[in-house]
């Protein structure tokens, strides 16, 4: 390393080393978050890698000492939605309709099957799914999740609580796709029922 290089990077270099160390530690979390957004493991790793590189390239704009996990999650999320230009909002299910179908299960403490949970999550509107994942699994405070999702804290709270109720309803009615056939059929039937009930009032 030349003298100039050493001088030029003395401060930046030290920051870069620290940044990189922290970024490497976050990779497993970025992969996990990406997996919940993409579903497909390969696509998720591509997304996580893109986010990692974007974070690295943008390291100058990161303030050391602030929450790097939230910062990288925000980058990953932005990356995901900029790639996914499809109108994901329009594919949302009617949440309240799903919640109205909430029924009791025989054993509320019965373990939740992983596949069912995955499919149940997939049926949630994207914004509710991500809020629930960030708060319920990622260990973020509502305030941090709000920052990541670029919305108000109250919005995150409401999304998380709606997601919880909807997931409960979906799992307990078995509205998820049991045999790999058409995922939405059972759910659509439930929604149609609920729709009929709500318009009848």
């Amino acid at each position: 390393m030349s003298v100039e290089t050493a001088t030029r990077t003395s401060r930046d270099g030290a920051d870069d080393v620290g940044f990189k160390r922290e970024l490497v530690q976050l990779i497993p979390h970025l992969r996990a978050f990406a997996r919940t957004l993409c579903g497909d493991a390969t696509a998720a790793d591509d997304l996580a890698q893109d986010a990692m590189v974007k974070a690295w390239d943008a390291r100058a704009s990161f303030q050391m000492g602030t929450n790097m996990k939230a910062w990288t999650f925000m980058i990953l999320r932005n990356q995901f939605y900029s790639e996914k230009r499809r109108s994901w909002r329009q594919t949302q299910l009617d949440q309240e309709a799903a919640e109205r179908t909430l029924v009791a299960v025989d054993d509320p403490e019965a373990p939740v099957a992983l596949d069912e949970l995955r499919q149940g999550l997939a049926m949630l509107p994207a914004e509710q799914r991500e809020a629930l994942i960030l708060v319920g699994a990622g260990g973020f405070a509502y305030e941090e999740a709000a920052e990541i999702c670029d919305c108000a804290v109250g919005t995150v709270k409401s999304r998380v609580s709606r997601a919880r109720r909807a997931l409960h309803a979906i799992l307990d009615t078995g509205a998820y796709d049991r045999d790999g056939a058409s995922a939405g059929d059972a759910m659509r039937a439930i929604l149609a029922d609920a729709e009929r009930l709500s318009t009848a009032r």
């Binding site: 919940t36 403490e109 373990p111 939740v112 992983l114 949970l117 699994a137 919880r164 409960h168 307990d172």
Partner: peptide, 14 residues
């Protein structure tokens, strides 16, 4: 209780 069971599974999945 059901919510708790779902929450546990969710964290586990992550």
């Amino acid at each position: 209780l059901r919510q708790q069971a779902i929450g546990v599974r969710l964290r586990q999945m992550f």
